[in-house]
Design a protein around this nucleic acid. Structure first.
Length: 694
RNA sequence: GCGCCCGUAGCUCAGAGGAUAGAGCGUCUGCCUUCUAAGCAGAGGGUCGGGGGUUCAAGUCCCUCCGGGCGCGCCA
């Protein structure tokens, strides 16, 4: 609701400026430091003062008096050195927020976007299918999944892809492990796959293979042979690779399902190879002169791409509305030489190799082909088959090269593509986008977003707790890098198990007489709440130094704290229903808007504390909009926490059930209901459920 | 060498140019006969890495220096 009123104010201010012939001053609004100064403020008079060579206060005064009436705003005042402050109609705001929240629960559910809506493809998770998922992968999935939820709430049509690199070095290494260390046949591996936590077995085997190679470097030849066999899809190695990678992907899907993450499609690298996606992309790149054959220097014999001088704009792009034109890129136009594929002749040594001198394509090359396919620009498509059906009946598909099944939806053909990939791959993502641009797909290049984030590392204490011997130097550092190769890292399922056990202990202590199955369900919900909140509360640029103490905490700024606030509200409603036979949530929800009493209880001064809570609860839409345009899920996490905090304060100040004034009690109940709904919605956007009790 | 990110309370982090720099954890002190204490209240804690600059206004933008991290493979 806040977003709506704020937008009206901004529109009115823009109109005011236009009326005075001023077009180029951006309208900025902000939240005043306290509700005593209103709900929206603009410092625009300061900017105007410079232009008009007049005192800001004087200008602010004119704005305040000249502005047209704005629905939802009762008065406009000047304050400070020249702020213009807007005061909301508190009762009207509360009534509108209340009915909006009631409606949102039923009409704005995820996945309700119409088929005509331009599609966003979000690629996330992308774990190599050769070992168990670890906390780093969880951050990727939690960020990606939450961003998907945000897009869907904004009405966007979203397709979630989880790319499977099933023909890469990492899978090859585990194949070497099974074939040469374990000396197992395909049949034997097939039997092993059926056992629980096959991915854990691979985790350990992968670390052993790393050591196996380190002991004798000539053994690396095995990797090369295996990789080639897998890429060509021939022989025992390819068969093993298929068995292993499919089994590990199933483990990953199960792990991600535990935290409520689902996918629509699993595109596999094997199909990108089999269906010759690269050939199609190569053809285009050659024809458009986007790549060229280097004749001299260290890259002689390779097809290379020369990157423009400044390939990328700012890291944080503004999210455009559906179907809006792409942002302009004047920086590129002003530097025409930067887009020349061949500048200065002998600079090929700095160029990015796309095709090796032996004719094989690099990872980036395949990624360019994949990116083209996502936009529907490749001129080729996969065949598809069903891979897994979730309990909610949703099906995740995967790619295949042999005919495929009927009934697959249309995949790809995206208007916008978001690749959730850690920041270490920024350079490669830039190469992919430069490739699109060099092919003349300026629009798609501008709509290719690297949704980057920094990695999860381990605190030195955590690493040593896990039995990893640290050097003196490492102990002094703030964090230690996770290493799949060394087997150093916290496995996702282990962490989930620990969280569930810890939550279970808390639930058991509080609800001894609740049936065991229900206690387990609650514990699971709390565990996921703790984990997802922990992964989402940091902004994307922060390196998370993982520590069990922080991650296992259920107090303070955590998911369970937010869940608990929602549960408290529900407890009030439940107790109320027990004590007052005539009470029901339905009656609370659809009671005629008693704006007179709202006005009374929210009035300036004594009603300020209730108003602050109502205002915060009614600001969810603004927070979501900000989170979307900044592409920062942490903003939603922060909002949920602040709302929970405000509600806890309210909870202690106002004892609802014992409130003797019936009108006031009704109002406090409605306010609690609004908060509960908004909190549940905010948590849902984070992929966190609020349990009925905890 | 070039590029990107980070540096804010003892620790971990928020602060997308605006009003008095915040939160959580940790420490100390209170509050459970109450709608569940997974909670609340209070105390203490700051040269916003240093220095210049732009601006009516800088933790936020620019330059520079100092710390730290990550990229810049015919690996993926």
């Amino acid at each position: 609701m806040y977003h709506i009123v704020e937008a009206r104010i901004r529109a009115t201010l823009r109109e005011f400026l236009r009326r005075h012939g001023i077009q180029d001053i951006p309208v900025v609004t902000q939240r005043p430091p306290s509700v005593a100064l209103g709900e929206v403020a603009t410092p625009i008079a300061f900017e105007l003062a410079k232009r008009l060579r007049r005192a800001p206060r004087q200008i602010a005064q004119e704005i305040a008096t000249e502005l047209l009436a704005i629905p939802g705003v009762v008065r406009v005042e000047l304050a400070g050195a020249g702020y213009v402050n807007f005061f909301f109609d508190r009762a009207a705001f509360f009534a509108a927020a209340f009915s909006e929240a009631a409606k949102a629960g039923t009409t704005l559910r995820a996945g309700s976007a119409s088929a005509s809506e331009p599609k966003c493809v979000v690629e996330h998770t992308n774990i190599n299918p050769n070992k168990a998922a670890h906390i780093g992968h969880l951050r990727n999935a939690a960020l990606g999944d939450t961003f998907v939820r945000l897009l869907r709430r904004a009405g966007r049509r979203v397709e979630v892809q989880n790319y499977i690199d099933n023909t890469g070095v990492q899978v090859a290494d585990v194949v070497v492990g099974f074939a040469h260390l374990e000396k197992k046949t395909a049949e034997e591996v097939r039997a092993l796959v059926a056992a629980p936590r096959f991915d854990y077995f691979c985790w350990n085997l992968y670390a052993r293979v790393t050591q196996f190679f380190e002991e004798d470097e000539t053994r690396l030849a095995l990797r090369g042979q295996t990789l080639a066999a897998i890429e060509e899809g021939r022989g025992a190695e390819a068969e093993l690779a298929e068995i292993i990678s499919v089994a590990v992907v199933r483990c990953h899907l199960r792990t991600m399902e535990r935290l409520g993450v689902q996918y629509d499609l699993l595109p596999r690298e094997s199909e990108i190879l089999r269906l010759k996606f690269w050939d199609a992309a190569f053809q285009q790149l050659k024809e458009r002169g986007a790549i060229h054959l280097a004749s001299t220097g260290k890259n002689a014999g390779c097809w290379v791409m020369t990157l423009p001088e400044k390939p990328q704009g700012p890291g944080r792009q503004v999210l455009e509305g559906a179907g809006a034109p792409p942002p302009e890129r004047p920086d590129l136009q002003s530097d025409p030489s930067g887009t020349e594929p061949q500048e200065a002749g002998d600079s090929d040594d700095d160029a990015k190799v796309i095709v090796r001198s032996n004719g094989t394509v690099t990872y980036v090359g395949k990624d360019i082909a994949y990116q083209l396919w996502k936009f529907g620009l490749l001129g080729r498509d996969f065949a598809y088959r069903r891979f897994h059906a979730y309990p909610n009946a949703h099906t995740v598909w995967t790619t295949t090269s042999d005919g495929g099944e009927s009934g697959a939806p249309e995949f790809g053909h995206a208007a916008d593509v978001y690749n959730v990939i850690d920041t270490r791959q920024a350079y490669l993502q830039n190469v992919v986008v430069a490739g699109l641009r060099a092919l003349g797909f300026e629009n798609e290049a501008a709509r290719s977003v690297h949704f980057s984030y920094d990695v999860v590392a381990l605190s030195p204490r955590c690493a040593s707790e896990m039995g990893y011997a640290l050097s003196e130097q490492e102990m002094g550092k703030p964090y230690v890098e996770v290493s799949g190769r060394k087997g150093l890292g916290v496995k996702a399922d282990d962490l989930l198990d620990e969280l569930e056990a810890a939550a279970q202990a808390e639930v058991d202590a509080r609800h001894a007489d609740t049936p065991e199955a229900e206690r387990a369900r609650i514990a699971h919900t709390i565990a996921i709440g703790a984990l997802r909140y922990f992964l989402l509360k940091y902004t994307r640029t922060a390196i998370i130094a993982f520590d069990f103490r922080d991650a296992l905490s259920f107090e303070g700024e955590t998911g369970p704290y937010c869940q608990y606030a929602a549960v408290r509200a529900r407890n009030i409603f439940r107790k109320m229903a027990e004590q007052q036979l005539h009470f029901s949530l339905e009656q609370l929800d659809d009671a005629a808007e008693d704006q007179a009493s709202f006005k009374d209880f929210l009035k300036s001064g004594e009603g300020d504390d209730l108003w602050e809570l109502a205002l915060r609860a009614g600001s969810l839409d603004a927070q979501v909009a900000t989170a979307l345009s900044a592409q920062e899920p942490a903003f939603v996490a922060k909002y949920a926490f602040e709302l929970a905090q405000a509600f806890n304060l309210f909870y202690h100040r106002h004892h609802i059930l014992s409130e003797s004034n019936a009108a006031k009690r009704d109002f406090l109940l409605r306010l609690s209901r609004l908060v509960e709904r908004q909190l549940v919605t905010a948590l849902d956007l984070l992929g966190i459920e609020a349990p009925e009790k905890m």
